[in-house]
């Protein structure tokens, strides 16, 4: 497992998630499920960048709460706004 989960496979995963995001745009997809998928995809990408690229894995709890908290707050507020507003 450790051999598969490394910086190279993380890069591939990030690129694949970006391509899937682009494809939703290419087909002008909309709807709450699409919004959820796109935000969850952005959340996963952000999490991977913070954890693996910014090396937040294992740092003090306070900094992890601050950084992951920012990502969670932004993503969940966007989902709420799009749920209220509809598409």
């Amino acid at each position: 497992m450790k051999k598969i989960y490394n910086i190279h496979t993380i890069l591939i995963l990030l690129i694949l998630l970006t391509i899937s995001t682009y494809m939703f745009g290419h087909f002008n997809s909309s709807g709450l499920l699409v919004v959820l998928f796109l935000i969850i995809s952005a959340f996963i990408k952000g999490l991977l960048i913070m954890r693996e690229f910014m090396e937040l894995r294992g740092v003090s709890l306070l900094w992890r709460v601050i950084m992951y908290g920012w990502l969670t707050t932004v993503c969940s507020t966007i989902v709420i706004a799009y749920t209220i507003g509809g598409n």
Partner: peptide, 11 residues
């Protein structure tokens, strides 16, 4: 990473 889907894709 947040800006791209928010401004360009999500509708």
């Amino acid at each position: 990473i947040i800006l791209f889907p928010l401004i360009y894709i999500i509708r």
